[in-house]
């Protein structure tokens, strides 16, 4: 629809120190309204301490048809995983 408000993607940081995670999308007339709408739609149950919004049209995505060429080659290269280090117990969220 021509008069519909643009779509925005919403990212919420659930706790200080963690990353913002994509939680969904919504409609809003501008960025200020998008943040308010995100507050009302996505943080009603104490889900977050910080909100990012970005207009959906500014997100560029990889093409699913390229998946084989892009991701499969990583399959058999176990040496790329940093699994050979001992992590201290205090380190969480790795």
């Amino acid at each position: 629809m021509e008069n519909e408000w643009p779509l925005w993607e919403v990212f919420i940081r659930s706790k200080t120190g963690l990353d913002h995670k994509h939680v969904g999308s919504l409609h809003a007339a501008d960025a200020a309204m998008a943040i308010e709408n995100a507050r009302d739609v996505y943080t009603r149950r104490m889900e977050g301490v910080s909100i990012w919004v970005v207009e959906s049209r500014y997100i560029h995505a990889s093409n699913p048809d390229d998946a084989e060429a892009l991701y499969d080659p990583a399959n058999d290269k176990v040496y790329r995983h940093p699994t050979f280090y001992d992590l201290p117990d205090e380190l969480k969220h790795m």
Binding site: W5, L26, H27, E36, N37, D40, V41, R44
Partner: peptide
């Protein structure tokens, strides 16, 4: 008028 404002007002 839109879903988002419906939720906002209900909150």
């Amino acid at each position: 008028p839109v879903l988002e404002q419906d939720i906002a007002l209900t909150n």
